[in-house]
Design a protein around this nucleic acid. Sequence first.
DNA 1: GCACTTTGGCAACAGCGTTGCTTAAGTGGA
DNA 2: TCCACTTAAGCAACGCTGTTGCCAAAGTGC
Lengths: 376, 376
Amino acid sequence: MNGSRTKTQAGANLPALRHHNAALVLDLLRAAGAEGISRLELAEGTGLTPQAVSKITARLREDGLAAGAGLRPSTGGKPRTVLRLVPDAQFAVGLHLDRDGLTAVLVDLAGRPVAVTRAPLDLGAPADRVLADAADAVRDLCAAEPHKPVLGVGVAVPGPLDHRDGVLRRVTGFPQWDGYPLRAALAERTGLPVTLDKDTNAAALAVALALDEPRGDFAYLHLGTGLGAGLVLGGEVHRGARTGAGEFGHQTLQLDGPLCGCGGRGCIEALCLAAEARGDRAEAARVLGAGAANLVGLLGIDRVVLGGRTVAADEDAYVRGVRAVIEERAARGGAGTGVTVTVARGGDRPVAEGAAHLVLAPVFGRVGERVGGARG
Amino acid sequence: MNGSRTKTQAGANLPALRHHNAALVLDLLRAAGAEGISRLELAEGTGLTPQAVSKITARLREDGLAAGAGLRPSTGGKPRTVLRLVPDAQFAVGLHLDRDGLTAVLVDLAGRPVAVTRAPLDLGAPADRVLADAADAVRDLCAAEPHKPVLGVGVAVPGPLDHRDGVLRRVTGFPQWDGYPLRAALAERTGLPVTLDKDTNAAALAVALALDEPRGDFAYLHLGTGLGAGLVLGGEVHRGARTGAGEFGHQTLQLDGPLCGCGGRGCIEALCLAAEARGDRAEAARVLGAGAANLVGLLGIDRVVLGGRTVAADEDAYVRGVRAVIEERAARGGAGTGVTVTVARGGDRPVAEGAAHLVLAPVFGRVGERVGGARG
DNA sequence: GCACTTTGGCAACAGCGTTGCTTAAGTGGA
DNA sequence: TCCACTTAAGCAACGCTGTTGCCAAAGTGC
């Protein structure tokens, strides 16, 4: 099923228009959080007329997605009615299939986790076994909110894969997965729509949605046993044609440098991990910073977020080191002025939450809008 | 004037919908070239119903933007009517302000140049002088097609600048331009809408539109007296928040390498130009290839186009060298399988043409759609 | 208590793409 | 030569979008 054609750009019709504007409003409601936001602020934020916002929010309230939340103080006239998202109207499941463990999380529309399960997992086990474990985790989580609709399952996996087809490629260390149609298989077992993506992309999405500024460009750099990146451009995950984007670890940073496990020379991952291994954390941070600065200049990004176990071990050293390299380059007249460098809290948990966001993102218009099938 | 607000994402209304779909159809017409394209192919390409395409093309024909162009051979029924873009319905001016010369070109809707002027220029001269020269060039070109509408002027300039505000930053070598509102100044003198962008972005746009595949991701690498890049993602120029994206030349490729003019060490530009200066063209190409491969992995790009005077001097060597590095990395299991490496013909001329495309791109829906002002 | 400001819904409206149907313009077999 | 069939493309009616004009609701402040 789901024989989606992705040949060309999509024409838009009235249902698409309606969906687009509704998603925009929902995104602003989500960003406003428990505080809420008034109709006129929604109008200001979307560029729509207040009357259009009234109609759209009326539909959202009818669907149970939005609700009133008190009044603003008057400014000389009728006080504004505050609207807020109803977080527990719908839910999504996020699955993080890692090399040695399975983390599953049920999140509400606001992205807050309402149930989490963790279990050991052997990615080297037969596919059926892994699939059964994943499906069981999904079923158990759905039981936590028995009468609420679950929109779908987002799955984050380490290796290279094809997001569009939902097929795994040669996951590093587990080549037997190459070509396995994980999305279709899990969709059949759970009866839910499934979205597949790289773990770094999921983490990047989770971090991006947690930021204040709604639709900026930023990069998430993950330093754990390897080094990878997730890019969010214009509020959407940038995946490239074949989900190949974000290969950050094997960029050359030292021509003819030391040999890397990938067979190349002077890869940033090799340099960074080698420095960390010999205890020279400042050098590891400097190397990471050089790569981050390259990224900042190339994409004009103004926010870099670091994460992963290795970073978590000494957050300050990495943040300071990376920030120093970027600021030094900016001071020389290069790009990078005003770039923010921060760290993602929570270790690996953001990956599972981000996986759930893969499902939620389309609701908030954060993805190439499945508007394409105008005849759907 | 033009007090456009760019605060947030744009809500869409019916005029916006109409404009969007018309732009989509125009883009397909443009891509079809003189061959033309039938209504049903347009429907297939946009996802719209044939009836909608009929309505849209009827409007385009009424506006003089499209016209019939014969019939297809019948396949057993009524033969399809072929439609084509009317290239000389509208025009745009492209201006390339370089350090030592001014190239101006008048292009039609299809992007073909119909008039070109070149003149020496001293970017170090007073702003009024440069502005007058530019305005004169625009006026002369418009006289070439006296009775046809000119949509606007696109200006390509070397240095860092702000595309959104239309203000120059510290153009390398000519710091006196810092803060000069070139867009507003030229718009006032010519009475035409003006778009400002970096020369590499203009070149990238020109090359992207000349490709067959309509909306892919690709990178244009320009190696002349410096080394820069223009990125086209999803058919649109990627500029980043402050038009800073595309700083390719000063990415670190050799940690603690030789000193670069920018004050940094091991910048790819310094390495590449040094190799070229000592006659080691293979090494220069290899260095450029390493940077290109980094880019390919990071963004999942599947097409790299090289250009600039230095590349033009020995196209084969550079194409082969860059291709070799990318393919070697792909063979090791990294990204880069199936990446195409080609060279842009025509020396610097594409920059002026690309500048004109800055004006044409919105017509074909190739830009952040000025849909925002729903009330406009 | 009255004038004023501000919010927000009701009703009418123009205009979008879609649907159902008809007409136009070919092919190919009897 | 005629007729059945196929394919293309327009006409008319329709449902639905956001917009506009207007008015009721609900506050403040003199």
